[in-house]
């Protein structure tokens, strides 16, 4: 912390960023670059996509990769590259919305449990255990089924199965921090409970939550694609990666590129979030990086 303060004084912001511990490993830099690339694709999809993702061109259906269609066309003649680019919007958006909402809600529950202790803690932790007992995809499927298959409902279902782990993590952090001297000191000078939580506990508890969020971005992207693959998330003709793999399923022996490229997109996106999660964990927990 002090190092960062003095550094801000002497160095420009750009050099400070370059000195960030997360950027010391080339793998982390590669992960961040890939995530940046996916984000750029998502934001600028309408500008960079060579074709409309929904326009059908039956005359040029099932074409292999070529200079006109870099990644080929699907069974309705739609350009796969354009659909992939638009698909990155959906996948990243689902990841962000689910992880942010589940993270905020779970952290809120965990902080209350850890800070209040006693019966409240006991009750809230039993509740998280119940949610953790369900295999995530199966519970998400049941919820998405109850609400009706759609992208929004898939997001709600995934958030419902993701929040509990944040509650567990946040509670653990709060329990280990609440008796520390700086918290006692804040209490001693008469800081309100809200201030103690918001200014002293939460900022110090955030590291493992961020690591979890990075891993969850990956697993939510996979789970959302999985839900769409079996018909419970995005619906055709939406250019969603899971939908694209599902549509290409019948062509796997003859035109494998239909499923191959969306799968690779998922692999790269999820892989870069997992790498980033590893990197963040190493930065926040040097004990682990020594073992690495």
């Amino acid at each position: 912390m002090t190092e960062a303060f003095t550094a801000t004084g002497r160095l420009g912001a750009a050099r400070l960023v370059a000195r960030a511990p997360i950027l010391r490993s080339p793998l982390n830099v590669a992960a961040l670059a890939l995530i940046g690339l996916f984000a750029a694709c998502a934001i600028f999809a309408p500008l960079i996509a060579p074709y409309d993702p929904l326009t059908q061109a039956l005359a040029s259906r099932l074409q292999p990769p070529s200079p006109e269609h870099w990644l080929g066309t699907d069974q309705l003649g739609r350009d796969i590259l354009s659909r992939l680019l638009y698909g990155s919007r959906i996948s990243l958006l689902i990841g962000l919305v689910v992880v942010a909402s589940a993270g905020v809600f779970g952290t809120f529950v965990g902080v209350i449990a850890g800070y209040a202790g006693g019966l409240v803690d006991e009750a809230l932790m039993r509740l998280t255990e119940v949610f953790l007992a369900f295999p995530a995809l199966i519970l998400a499927m049941a919820i998405a089924g109850a609400l009706g298959p759609s992208l929004t409902n898939a997001i709600i279902a995934l958030a419902a199965v993701t929040w509990a782990i944040y509650a567990r993590l946040a509670r653990g952090q709060i329990l280990s921090l609440r008796r520390r001297e700086f918290v006692e000191a804040a209490r001693g000078i008469g800081a309100s409970q809200f201030r103690i939580i918001a200014r002293h506990l939460l900022p110090n508890a955030v590291a493992p939550l961020l690591v979890q969020a990075s891993f969850d971005m990956g697993s939510v992207i996979i789970a959302a694609a999985g839900l769409s693959f079996i018909g419970f998330g995005a619906q055709p003709p939406t250019p969603e990666w899971g939908v694209m793999i599902s549509e290409g399923r019948n062509f796997i022996s003859t035109e494998p590129w239909l499923s191959l490229f969306p799968g690779l997109a998922i692999l790269l996106a999820v892989g870069s979030f997992n790498l980033l999660g590893d990197g963040l964990r190493d930065v926040f927990d040097p004990r682990l990086s020594r073992a690495d």
């Binding site: 996979i222 694609a225 999985g226 796997i252 494998p256 191959l260 799968g263 998922i266 692999l267 892989g271």
Partner: peptide
């Protein structure tokens, strides 16, 4: 790393494509 990042339904399709078809 790949194992933790692969969608299982896609991996299934790929191995069927390769080892069966």
């Amino acid at each position: 790393l790949a194992g933790g990042s692969l969608p299982v339904f896609w991996l299934g399709l790929v191995v069927i494509g390769l080892f069966y078809y």
